[in-house]
Design a protein around this nucleic acid. Sequence first.
DNA 1: ATTTAAAGTGTCGATTTTACACAATCAATT
DNA 2: AATTGATTGTGTAAAATCGACACTTTAAAT
Lengths: 253, 253
Amino acid sequence: MFALMKKESSLAAEHGLKNSGLIKDVKKLVESYPRVPITVDCVIFGFDENELKVLLIRSDIEIFKDKWSLLGDFAADNEMLDDAAYRVLRERTGMDDVYLEQVKTFSRPDRHPGGRVLTVAYCSLLNIEHHQLRKMDNELHWHSVKKIKEMAFDHKEILDECYTWLQKRIQEHPLGFNLLPEKFSLRELQNLYEAILDVKMDRRNFRKKFFAMDFLIDTGEFEDDVPHRPGKLYQFDFYKYSHTKKKWNGIDF
Amino acid sequence: MFALMKKESSLAAEHGLKNSGLIKDVKKLVESYPRVPITVDCVIFGFDENELKVLLIRSDIEIFKDKWSLLGDFAADNEMLDDAAYRVLRERTGMDDVYLEQVKTFSRPDRHPGGRVLTVAYCSLLNIEHHQLRKMDNELHWHSVKKIKEMAFDHKEILDECYTWLQKRIQEHPLGFNLLPEKFSLRELQNLYEAILDVKMDRRNFRKKFFAMDFLIDTGEFEDDVPHRPGKLYQFDFYKYSHTKKKWNGIDF
DNA sequence: ATTTAAAGTGTCGATTTTACACAATCAATT
DNA sequence: AATTGATTGTGTAAAATCGACACTTTAAAT
């Protein structure tokens, strides 16, 4: 009916790894596997001037000259991929304790001109003002997500996937706060959601929704740099949120 | 403020790959990366006897003797991971055109006793009756997802993640149909959702919801093997669903 | 004092969700 | 042929949620 190709077993058999049907020498088994270079790539989102931004570096590869690239690195020996992604983040932004989540693994054999390289894409959200961009490193820039067109490697595809992922994710969990300063007005929060989702929302309904979620702490403080009536400043109650047992089934806009 | 470790660039520099700041020899660059064995593991779900099942194979590795394992294989040279996962599916079930989606990459350095092996987990949904389990292969079995406790490697963790993923996913998209026969009654459909989500639902409201979605084709046929009033049989309109432009924002149970 | 710009606030109608009960149908049994 | 058992199929009303909508308040700038 269909051909059976019991690759693993037959390969193991060829190498004489099996004995009475069971593989004993697992090291030898693993040595028989093909090996592939692995990198992580971080899609680092920030929010500034009412736009969603992504942190990119000018590619240092000649054929991608003048193209922009995500921040990545190869995974070191015995390094967890999450750790590798955190390392890249720390190295590039000086920030720790940043929201970071694995999104997807990209494996097109021709995605890297130097040969097959797998990459695991991570999405990161940070407050663009907290981070310490290395001033001397003028190869590192924040770009408007909407405007960026061409990128090195398959990084545009990765960015697109992560952006779509973020749009969906932000409607299920209150992640947006990671992009804002510790204290923020509801207008800033709404601008953030409107920018990411590319929609206009009703101010009153937006407020109702977030107050109903009950994760906003009224700081009693107000904006002080606006040329009009200042808005109240709130903090997000990360503690309460993370201890909320009930499953989060969607914020729904 | 923080130490800069420009790994990629400095490594490239060491190897003399850079010239006037730009890397020319990308092949050499990639050769300088550490390499890791990659596998794919398929979490193949089926639905039978009102239970969600997963297809497992008895581990052929001695230290995991008597443990069950997901179906996987290493990724061949220049093979896309999606293709590798499809290959595993085909080899093990004889099925093609099966729902398959990448879920997550697992990278704990000690997850494989033979040394570091990355694995990319895929979730697959299929009709347990369509597939051609190789009769001779009595190492392959369907297990109740709820009941399985111990597994080889970190496969229990992978299964758990994929099950959680499925619970969420099935509430956003009508994927459940992939687990059912081509023609099914609404009771079967409801049993499926109740089993996967582990909840009880109201029959009338459940029907309303699915009819409102408007993806059910009335076949005009009826169940014929039940000892009571037979229910109507429906088909899922995969075509209409896939051509539905509007974003699917959640089925909501 | 006036102007400007945004903050803050509540209601009502529409829609969606939930809870809930009884008649119809078929097979199996007597 | 009649009865029983099990499940299908169907509608409505109350409750909750969503979405549209406008005016007053506040502070800074002029």
